[in-house]
């Protein structure tokens, strides 16, 4: 099989393998609620990071607004369902819509900024939002938040167990990954990749830079919004502490660990960032130190993240397998 063929084969087999793995994983995990719970959280982080990798990994723009959109989605859905009594799935749609509209409005002015200035402006936006949430106590419950958020349901079936929620979250995650994958592979996506090299180059290839950036930012906001709504209806309460700047930084760390320009990177990073603190939690106050050292090591020694390290390993293995195969046929 030639390299080109095997790549095409991989392209077709990967989505199927992904769906299959998501389907059977609960069986592999032995139906353990605690492991399924971890898989739910990984799925939620993965969704946020798919959005972020479009904005940042491929668009090259360091946004620290993901926590804000995550919070906007979460509060929108929480308020829709508790104050208006709307079904949770409708709340999810409202969450996506609200986050998307706000993202779209914000994108035009904010994306004119570059690097640290963009990071600062998006960070400031998030902090202002938290203040507004905290102060509109009558609506949002202030800093004590809202409790007893309902579980999503379709007719009589409620997603109120880790297993059912796992399937809900991962259906959304796979859909998001599919959309993102198509964007990355499309002409627009290639243009976006060009963006991270030189904007003038991209523009001269006929890529409408500003428009693409705006849509990527909006899509990132939509995904973060849905993820936020999924998160709060899972843990059944909402308070502003979950949406602080440290969440945005954590999302950037996910891409740094996993690799910022591929979906596999977002996934591997999400797994690492979810699983590590849980594994380290019994190391008392040393847990954060160990996490910090591991993070630093990943940034310094894995230039393209876990995904990059993985794919170069695979490449090396196939190359050596092929060369040994050629030697054998000689």
């Amino acid at each position: 099989m030639s390299a080109e063929q095997s790549r095409a084969f991989g392209r077709q087999i990967l989505p199927v393998a992904g769906i299959g793995l998501v389907g059977v994983l609960p069986v592999l995990l032995g139906g353990s609620n605690s492991l399924l719970n971890i898989a739910v959280l990984i799925g939620i982080y993965f969704i946020v990071c798919i959005g972020l990798s479009l904005i940042f990994g491929i668009g090259g723009q360091l946004s620290l607004a993901q926590a804000a959109f995550y919070g906007i989605g979460a509060y929108t859905s929480a308020l829709f369902t508790t104050k208006l009594g709307a079904p949770v799935l409708l709340g999810f749609c409202a969450a996506a819509l609200t986050a998307g509209v706000i993202g779209w409005i914000l994108a035009a002015p904010i994306l004119r900024l570059r690097t640290v200035y963009l990071a600062m402006a998006t960070l400031a936006f998030g902090e202002i939002l938290i203040t507004l949430i905290r102060e509109n106590r009558g609506l949002t419950g202030g800093s004590t938040g809202l409790l007893n958020l309902p579980a999503p349901a379709v007719g009589p079936f409620a997603f109120d167990t880790p297993l059912s929620y796992y399937y809900l979250v991962w259906t959304v995650a796979l859909a998001a990954a599919w959309v993102a994958r198509n964007i990355i592979r499309s002409r627009i996506g290639l243009g976006l990749r060009a963006l991270s090299d030189t904007e003038i180059g991209a523009a001269s290839c006929g890529v409408d830079v500003a428009r693409f950036k705006t849509w990527m930012f909006t899509l990132g906001a939509v995904l973060a919004g849905i993820a936020g709504a999924l998160f709060v209806h899972y843990i059944t309460f909402i308070s502003p502490d979950s949406f602080s700047v440290s969440f945005s930084i954590l999302m950037v760390m996910i891409l740094a660990i996993g690799g910022r320009d591929s979906l596999a990177g977002a996934l591997l990073g999400a797994i690492a960032v979810t699983v590590l603190p849980i594994l380290l939690a019994s190391y008392d106050r040393y847990s954060e130190l160990i996490f910090g050292v591991l993070f630093l090591a990943a940034v310094m020694f894995l230039p393209n993240g876990l995904a990059g390290a993985g794919s170069s390993l695979v490449r090396r293995l196939t190359v050596s397998a092929r060369s040994s195969g050629e030697r054998a046929s000689d």
Partner: peptide, 21 residues
């Protein structure tokens, strides 16, 4: 630039954790 920012972010976490200990 991006890697350097992340290195300093990692160092910040490590410094704080060490100071806490």
């Amino acid at each position: 630039e991006f890697t350097l920012i992340l290195v300093t972010l990692g160092l910040s976490i490590v410094f704080e954790a060490l100071a806490l200990i």
